[in-house]
Structures are given as C-alpha cells and as structure tokens.
Design a binder for these strands. Structure first.
Lengths: 251, 251
DNA sequence: GTGTTTATCGTCAGGCAGACGACTATGATC
DNA sequence: GATCATAGTCGTCTGCCTGACGATAAACAC
C-alpha cells in the first residue's frame, strides 16, 4: 500500500470525555449542553478537536482541565494527589456519526472525586453532573428536562465508559480515584456500591480491602465525618492490581 | 468550542493489526516487511488507511482479509467457524509517530488459529509469523536477520496487543479463538501455556475447563492427533465470560 | 442513659484451586 | 506381543477465600 498523499481521505480527530464521579451515592457523568446544531440544545459529552501538535492523551487532559479544572494525576508524583485518573477508552469512527463531516473520536475515561461544581467555560448552566442511568435511559425523561438520549453516539460511548469503570474496579485499585486523598473504608465501600448499584457487606468488605497488601495504607488519622464510630483514614497504596479481585455480586 | 471548519487540522487515519496465533507452542504475530521509506526493509504490523466510507472495524476486517485471507468470525452465525476474532485495541496518535505526516492509527487485535502460511498481497517473503519475543526483544537480534525493533511505534502496539490477549484469556473464552473449530482439552491447554509461557497442570486444567458451564461442548468425536490416549473433541460453547476466571500462575 | 449509626473483629461453612496419586487408552519400540 | 512412552481423565486432600452473620466499640442525638 503506497503512501500516495492523495490516496487517503482527511479526517477530523476529536477527543470525547466520559468523566465519572460519585455524588450522593450515585454514579454521575459530566454532560454539556450543545449550543449549536447539530443536536442543538441536547446534552453531550465534553470534548473537542485534537490540535496539530498534541498527543491524544494531551488533548484529553487539556479538555478535562478546560471543562472541570481537574489536573490529571501524575503517576510520577503521587504525593500531590487530587488529580483525576485518565485513560483511553475506545475510538469511534462510524462514517455517519457526525452528519457534517468524517470525524473520528478517541474517547477517554476520567474518574474524579466529588467536585464542587462543574464549569464549562465558566457557564455553569451548560454543564452538569447527571446520574448515568438518567443519561442512558431508553425511554422518555421524567418531568422537567429530558436528558437522554445524548447527542451523536455519545450514549454508546458513555455506556462503554461506565462498563469499563464497573469492571475495572473489580481487579484494580481504581475505585480510590473516586475518593479524596484520604478516605475511610466505608467511603470506599460506598463508591463500590454506587458504581455497581449493589449493597456490600461492610464486614466482609473491610476484611477484603484491609487484607489486600498494598491496597490501603493507614495515615494514622481518624474521622467521624460519616457519623458513628470514628473510622481510620487511609491513602491509596502503591498496588494497582487487586489479586484476588473484588467480586461483584450477581445482579 | 465552535465547529469552525478551518479550526481543526486534517489527520490521516489508519488501522494497524496485531494478528496473533499459536504455532509450535509459541505465540506468534504477523509481521510484514516494509518496501519503502521510512523504515524501509524493517518489519512492521500490517495495516492501511481507513477509507472514506467505511467504519473502523470494517477497515480492520478488510485489512485482515487482505493480509491473511481470514474472514472475521460472525457472532451471529457461530456455526460456520474458522473465522478470526477481531476487536479494537487502542489508538495511537503521537504527533511524531510517522515522520511524514500526522497519522492516527486505530490498532486492532486479531486472534486466529494456526494458519497454513501468510500471504501479503501474494508475496510470501514479505510476510511472516514471528514469535512475539523475537519481535519485541530489546537487544540485538540473533544470527541472520534482525526482526526487532519494529517500524514506527509498532513495538509498543504489539506489546499492548499481547498484553491484552494474555489478560483476556483469563476471564473469557477467547483462547478458543486460537483453536480450530474442534479441539481437545489438551490443545486448549497448550494455547494457554504458549500465550502465558507457563506450564499448567493437565489435571487441574481439565477439571477447570470441563467444569465451567457453557465453556466447552463435546462434539462426541475423539482424536489421537496429539498421540497418546484418544481425547474428546469439543467446540467452544456459548459462554464468553469465565466466572470464576482461569488463574494465571505467578510468573 | 438510651437509641442510632458506623466501624471493626470473629466465627463458621462452602467452594475453588494447587499438589499430586491412580488409572486408561493409544502408538512406538524391542 | 510385551514393554514403554505419551496423553487424557478421574479422585483425593488441604488450604485459602468468600458469603453469611453474631458481637463489640465508639461516636452523636435526644
């Protein structure tokens, strides 16, 4: 296959972001309202064009910072935390996915702790955290505004991102990316419960996470911010893979 | 972010293929020799441009057929088998990855049973199955020709594909994609052993795979093609997820 | 104090995996 | 044809992990 410069069609390349967080016991995604056609007024995932001189991950990190102010957690400097986890999710390139032109979108998945408020270029009314079920629901929305379906193929992208997050917290320590730098076992458990939409036994969960070497390191402090007996505070340990994995209950 | 048509740079989009198979107890990948600069004469992964009217998966399937003659296994018609498994792997878009222009490559992973011989546009000397360690080795090649390093960032892509395959056969029935339509438990075990580069206990392996519902369905036939006592023949069952997973031994 | 909430420790039974013995059925070799 | 080598298949045993769940501890609200 010769590299004839006239032999390949030009594409636009974008990054779209599935930004997930846990708010009030429910898994939420960041959605922005489209201000222009197509799909004007509808909700979509944040994203934008990849610039001529930046890598895909750089573009994703830039878009994430523009939409949320989050910096990406630097694996080299885990001390200063509160950054988000960012990874590539998948690429979507159906010829019909954008009615205007041929656009290939490299979707990324970002996980962040609960944030004060979204900001989309300073315009708060055009960005929101919405429960993922609400953004993904097939049928009609409830009263007020209808969130679903998302613009373009963003519903599919969001579903893929949610599924990635749900499965990845099984065998990795990724759930800590939803937590503040210091957190309790109970807070971590509520993350799993929100992401999986299940109830977990607090005693077995405690045994599992504290018994997995390298998963959690105690900071020595305690907190009562959840009420009840004071709980130990932990930071995420160095381990990234959980072996054996956390088992997701049936259904 | 307005969609100003002059605001985005044009990209070339390609698909690159990590095609894996198991030959003579070792995990091999398909490599093609580059006939022109850059990296002329070096080995690379097969791939090509995405056409203006085709989806990414279509482009990958087309390239796979062109390079190997393999058709992609149709999930809707599992009866006629001998197709390959094909899935998207990841997308690589470093601005410097191709010295000629800005190319974003959507890599795909294909798994195939052992094949008669490669064909790259009919020219056999420009395509070969090479053990992945050979293609990935850091140092110098042995006598004869040096395979590594691959052209562009294909070494990284291949490493990612191999890692995906290694981890995915843990929790899915994907290892059967390396087998012919009918296979024995021992043949399936040798696939795991080749992909993981480990030795597995034949008795425990047999208990595991035959005890997992939906993984294997006996065809009733037997074979002695491996020597020794005749072994039952199986086909891949409908189950795609293995629960609990096959455990990969420590190193 | 009493009740409520959350955290944490313990106990027990069942399931599964690793280690490994035993037996079976074929082809190869003497 | 007896013997050997090779693979396949069935069992047993032990230890670890999980799910279910009782019990205790330490805070706050009244």
């Amino acid at each position: 296959m010769p590299y004839d410069p006239s032999a390949f069609p030009p594409f636009a390349v974008t990054v779209d972001l599935v930004v997930l967080t846990v708010r009030r016991h429910s898994l939420c995604a960041l959605a922005v309202r489209r201000g222009e056609p197509p799909f004007q007024g509808r909700w979509a995932l944040p994203g934008g064009f990849v610039r001529a001189d930046e890598d895909l991950s750089q573009a994703a990190a830039r878009e994430l910072a523009e939409e949320t102010g989050l910096r990406v957690h630097d694996p080299a400097a885990p001390a200063q935390d509160n950054g988000a986890h960012l990874e590539q999710l998948a690429t979507y390139g159906d010829p019909e996915r954008d009615p205007r032109m041929r656009v290939v979108s490299v979707a990324h998945l970002a996980l962040a702790p609960d944030l004060p408020a979204p900001r989309a270029g300073g315009d708060a009314s055009n960005a929101r955290w919405a429960p993922v079920e609400e953004l993904l629901e097939e049928g009609l929305g409830r009263d007020g505004e209808q969130a679903a379906p998302l613009a373009f193929d963003h519903g599919r992208i969001l579903a893929d991102g949610v599924e990635r997050a749900r499965s990845k917290i099984e065998y990795s320590s990724l759930a800590t990316a939803f937590c503040p730098p210091e957190f309790t076992v109970g807070e971590l458990r509520r993350v799993y419960e929100a992401v999986w939409s299940v109830a977990l036994d607090p005693r077995n969960f405690h045994r599992k996470v504290t018994g997995t070497p390298g998963f959690l390191v105690p900071t020595g402090g305690t907190t009562t911010r959840q009420g009840g007996r004071p709980a130990q505070l932990f930071r995420a340990g160095g381990a990234t893979l959980l072996n054996p994995p956390m088992l997701r209950p049936e259904v």
